[in-house]
């Protein structure tokens, strides 16, 4: 007899997507389809949710993300190429009450800045690092990086990376996870909404680790470089799924703290 009542509209609309407060409204200079924008947004969301924006001193790298200071509304210092972990150490030591965040690419962290990242981790510096691995030097025009896959063509490995000439890709996050000073190390990606959500959880955990004071925290994020790879945005995401993730497995590599993020499928955490 009775007619089913239609679902009532909620008293106030539930916001499911909005501009994070810490993300500026400036248009980014990133290429169409680039993953940096997604990652910046995740950082802005996490810092906002943890209320860390006013406490944060961030370190921008050399590379495409050098302009992070234009997009994230945080105090920023620009580090020389590869030196972000040293710069962050200097900040950390004289500003014990601030939150210290650094953002690095794979050329920055895994090539020119290898010594700095290893020793910042070895000292157990209370720093949270975001490591964007897109397997290429994007800003300088797509040259081979230490993380470039074997066989991958770049402007400086035009016939594809050969191990006999250019060695092997470095899984530096696994290397860093060996160090007792590394409290948290994880690898995520941003190829679909599910992986974006998991990566956000990793970033959040890496920030909490710093607040807990247990040591160095790093999240590697497999990202894309459609222009450098010569692929469309969608193809570049497919490429990460098919080629990059098998070489760089996803998941939490180590979490020496109390709570851990559940490893994603295919991960080794």
């Amino acid at each position: 007899m009775s007619v089913a009542t239609p679902p009532r509209a909620p008293a106030s609309p539930r916001v499911i997507y909005q501009q994070p407060e810490l993300l500026s409204e400036t248009s980014t200079r990133y290429c169409p389809g680039c993953g940096h924008g997604i990652i910046h947004r995740l950082i802005a969301e996490v810092l906002g949710e943890l209320g860390l924006g006013p406490r944060t001193i961030a370190v921008a790298p050399v590379g495409c993300a050098v302009f992070a200071y234009d997009y994230l509304l945080l105090d920023f210092v620009e580090a020389p190429h590869g030196r972000a972990p040293a710069v962050a150490t200097g900040i950390r030591r004289v500003r014990p009450d601030n939150f210290v965040l650094m953002y690095q690419g794979d050329g920055d962290l895994a090539a020119i800045g290898t010594a700095e990242i290893v020793h910042a981790a070895a000292r157990g510096e209370r720093i949270t690092g975001i490591f964007v691995n897109n397997g290429i030097y994007g800003m300088t025009g797509g040259q081979m990086a230490p993380t470039t896959l074997l066989g991958q063509r770049t402007t400086s490995s035009p016939t594809g990376r050969e191990a006999s000439l250019a060695g092997y890709p470095i899984r530096i996050t696994e290397m860093l996870a060996q160090l007792p000073g590394t409290a948290y190390a994880a690898r995520g990606t941003i190829i679909d909404p599910s992986s974006v959500g998991k990566t956000k959880a990793m970033i959040k955990r890496a920030c909490q680790v710093q607040l807990e004071g247990t040591g160095f925290a790093l999240v590697e994020i497999l990202s894309n470089c459609p222009v450098g790879w010569g692929l469309t945005a969608q193809q570049s995401m497919d490429h990460i799924r098919a080629e990059v993730i098998p070489a760089y497995p996803l998941g939490v590599i180590i979490d020496r703290g109390k709570r851990a993020v559940a490893p994603t499928s295919g991960g080794e955490g």
Binding site: V77, R83, V87, G90, A115
Partner: peptide, 19 residues
């Protein structure tokens, strides 16, 4: 801080100095 290199030392100074 005894840095891992002079490169690191001067960049630690850069970070601390920036504050």
């Amino acid at each position: 801080v005894q840095a891992e290199s002079e490169l690191a030392a001067i960049n630690m100074a850069l970070g601390a100095g920036a504050t």
